[in-house]
């Protein structure tokens, strides 16, 4: 066939051969080569038990979580081109994102994607529990997963402030108000009263954990900047590293769980 002839010609070019070191994955040797020779695909094992590829067993929720994380990274990067994290500009920039920028649904994809990621993480965890996949040898990886769950919630929480509208500021006021009540480390927590020498209060609203989180005594501009940095740089970096550990351990602990 002509198409085949053209395809063969393309495959025989030096450029194609320099990128793909093996033929089409239609035989055992090339199927192994395509997985092992590609930096992205080599997350996967070359072969795995049939139960591990059945959607009825895996629900694909962990993989979707990772995909949504990537999608959020991309849409988040695009949003950063138009957003300035200051009290003066933040809110107007969000409006501009909707009205002055083509494809005005970028923020929607980012926000709903964030919600979807929380849901997929929960369902993934539910599946892992119900199949007993946290049992030896995967105990440690379950712990990494729990930390990733917490970081997912924190990512979503820090992002909640950035639109700088009434919804954002009061949700964060309520949320960070709890940090104020941390035992011994928050100014309104148990034990903070005891940490005082005479008239000098050691744990006050100027040096407790809430102040560190917000960079101030209430949700203001320093809090916006801190949440922005946490949301865009710090937590994604930590999440990225932990995802690498998580996937690595899935492989090292014997791949996706299956009956022993």
């Amino acid at each position: 066939m002509a198409g085949n002839g053209l395809a063969k010609k393309v495959r025989d070019t030096q450029v194609w051969k320099s990128i793909f070191r093996h033929g089409p994955p239609d035989n055992a040797r090339n199927r192994a080569a395509v997985i092992a020779g590609n930096v992205f695909l080599h997350l996967h094992p070359i072969k795995l038990k049939k139960s591990g590829v059945q959607l009825g067993y895996t629900w694909c929720m962990g993989g979707l979580t990772f995909f949504i994380f990537l999608a959020l990274t991309v849409t988040g990067l695009l949003l950063m081109f138009y957003y300035r994290p200051t009290a003066e500009y933040a809110f107007n920039d969000i409006i501009a994102l909707r009205e002055h920028v083509p494809l005005g649904i970028m923020r929607e994809i980012h926000r709903w994607g964030a919600h979807a990621m929380v849901i997929t993480v929960w369902i993934h965890m539910f599946r892992v529990f119900m199949t007993g996949s946290y049992k030896p040898p995967r105990e440690f990886n379950w712990g990494i997963g729990v930390i990733l769950l917490v970081l997912t919630l924190l990512l979503s929480f820090t992002g909640y402030l950035l639109p700088w509208d009434q919804l954002a500021i009061w949700a964060i006021t309520v949320g960070s108000g709890m940090a104020k009540a941390t035992p011994f480390m928050g100014n309104a927590g148990p034990g903070a009263m005891l940490a005082r020498i005479g008239d000098f209060v050691m744990v006050s609203d100027k040096n407790d954990v809430r102040f560190q989180l917000l960079g101030g005594r209430f949700v203001g501009e320093p809090a916006l900047l801190r949440f922005y940095i946490l949301h865009c740089v710090f937590i994604p970096l930590v999440v990225g590293v932990l995802i690498a550990v998580h996937f690595w351990r899935v492989r090292k602990d014997g791949g996706i769980s299956a009956p022993l």
Binding site: P25, A28, R31, A32, V34, I35, L41, H44, P45, I46, K47, L48, K49, K50, S51, V53, Q54, A258, P259
Partner: peptide, 10 residues
């Protein structure tokens, strides 16, 4: 039949 190994690709 579910224990047998299959290729990741495809």
């Amino acid at each position: 039949e579910n224990r047998e190994k299959v290729w990741s690709w495809p």
